[in-house]
Amino acid sequence: MRYALIVLIVLAVFMTGCAHNSARTPSVEPLTLSSPRHSDPPSMPEGQKPPEEKNKTPGLSNEELDTLYAEAKAGTVHVADPIEPFNRVMYHFNDKFYFWVLKPVTKGYKYVAPAGLRIAVRNFFDNLIMPVRLVNCVLQGKFHSAGTEVARFVINTTAGMLGFADPADNYPQLKTKDEDLGQTLGAYGIGNGFYIVWPLVGPSTLRDTVGLTGDLFLNPVAYVRPVGAAIGIAAYQRVNTTSFHIGDYESLKESAIDPYSAFRDAYIQNRAKKVRE
């Protein structure tokens, strides 16, 4: 039992894979924090136009400005961040982990492993965690998608040689979307709770952490024994996934004036999109 728990935790750490380049989630109401330092922007009612509206960009009518601000506002989804000091420390730890460990290792791996092999490995793991997607499709009542998952799995496991190839990809009607328990909970209307940055795993929220843990029970890798082997497999998968995304983390970081909050916003927005879909 203790072993199982350790495996679960370690796997949780590695399996989230692209924690760095992907972000995900649904919207929680802007639970504005009391501390002004890191709370969400003080929301001045946008409808209330300040008296000084004369010096606007030439060429933009009031109507266009409304369109512009509506668009910008729609793109902001906020999450409570009550443990920000802890999260910031974890963010810095993960940042160092990426630049000092994950990136050099991945670069070495990328150098020796041709793209074809890396894609095959990715396909294999994608196929392997079909149960996660299948169960979450069913839980969300997406029975058509669930059927597609099964069809994909059958084709790719047989014709695709245990999933290393992805012949199902040739059929547009067999396209699937990523589903996980965090998204399912989001679809049920459960909010993010608050933002958490886990060491090695990266950005998450209370809800997504619960989801991640639940999904592990459906991940065959979690049942590999001995534990060391399971960890090894998970670590390898992480490196393989990262090999497709070197440079993404760097550009997102460079694009931010405060990378910590930029990654938080990006994670929350991307998850919100996934829950909507």
Binding site: S22, A23, P36, R37, H38, D40, P41, P42, L68, E71, A72, K73, A74, G75, T76, V77, H78, A256, I257, D258, S261, A262, D265, A266, Q269, N270, A272, K273, K274
Partner: peptide, 25 residues
């Protein structure tokens, strides 16, 4: 083009939040 979404993340929204936080202090 007046806004771009990459993986669902809005360029305008992302910078708006960052700048608003920055300008608060």
């Amino acid at each position: 083009i007046f806004n771009v979404y990459v993986e669902g993340v809005s360029l305008l929204g992302n910078y708006r939040d960052q700048f608003e936080r920055f300008l608060a202090n």
